[in-house]
Amino acid sequence: MSDLHPPASTPAPSASAASPDPVDRSAEHGQLRMVATRFLRHRMAMASLTVLVLTVLFAFLGPLLWPWDHTVHREILPNQPPSWAHPFGTTNAGHDVLGQLMRGTQQTLKVALTVSVLATAFGALWGAVAGYYRGWIDAVMMRIVDVLMVVPLLVAVAAISGNVRGGTTWWAVALIIALFSWTTIARVVRGVVLSLREQEFVEAARAAGASDARIVLHHLLPNAAGPTIVAATLLIATSILLEASMSFLGFGIQAPDISLGLMIDNARTAAFTRPWLFYPPGLFIVMICLTINFIGDGLRDALDPRQTITRR
């Protein structure tokens, strides 16, 4: 035990400890199953997941089955209220609203989910690192966040998207929104990590010789999961609305392509005269936001081992 020889066994970065041990794996398996069990028992989350899956099918498989896409067709009578041929009616220019809705939902989902994944991953890591190290690292990192937060978003978007090739494709829009929205996540996670880092289990990990990366990835981020998920679900709703306002200003997804935000924008004068243009995309936005919020709730509870397995 009095071994003072230099590190003969090089300390392996054991974050990748995919151990071949059967017992260990079964324990891991048990945890996953427990998380799954808890999620399955969360009624609202399960209902929301079903609705969201149906929405995704509608958006991605629907266009393959429905005869009309989101573009103008001569065969379509313009300005028609809902009928059997066009269940959500048609627009002035001769779009099938159902066809638009499918394509719009698809684009919106792609943007929103990309934003939330990118911004959450980056923001959580940024915030955790800043909160863990504190001191001048924290000061510099959080001042960057502050600067990004005070830049008027739409002005920045206007400046950037003019200079980005393919500025109106969905992924470029998603990247631009993500660039400006990870800051909220970073702030939330930093706040949580600031209190977590003072807990004794972090010190215990340090005393065991754990590297900073291991502490951040294995201890701090999992324990910050609750607030992070809440912030991430809010972010999805925000990014849908942001995308809509970008489209309105002419920097987001542009016609002939369509998104839910753009549809609402096109129909904003028609809310009372031709409600079939306005309400379907509106309801879809509300529905997507709500389902994702409930799924987030369920996920947060399922990931927290302190929650008892009771039906709620």
């Binding site: 066994s9 090089t10 300390p11 392996a12 054991s14 400890a17 260990d24 324990a27 945890q31 807990q199 004794e200 289990f201 010190e203 215990a204 990990a205 065991a208 010789g209 754990a210 590297s211 291991r214 294995h218 201890h219 999992p222 324990n223 999961a225 990931l303 927290d304 081992p305 302190r306």
Partner: peptide, 22 residues
């Protein structure tokens, strides 16, 4: 406070071994 609430006790005890590649 000294045990990570999101880690099973097996993982908590195994952590020092993992950190040192043992």
């Amino acid at each position: 406070a000294s045990l990570d609430p999101r880690m099973t006790v097996f993982d908590a005890v195994a952590e020092p071994l993992r950190v040192h590649g043992q």
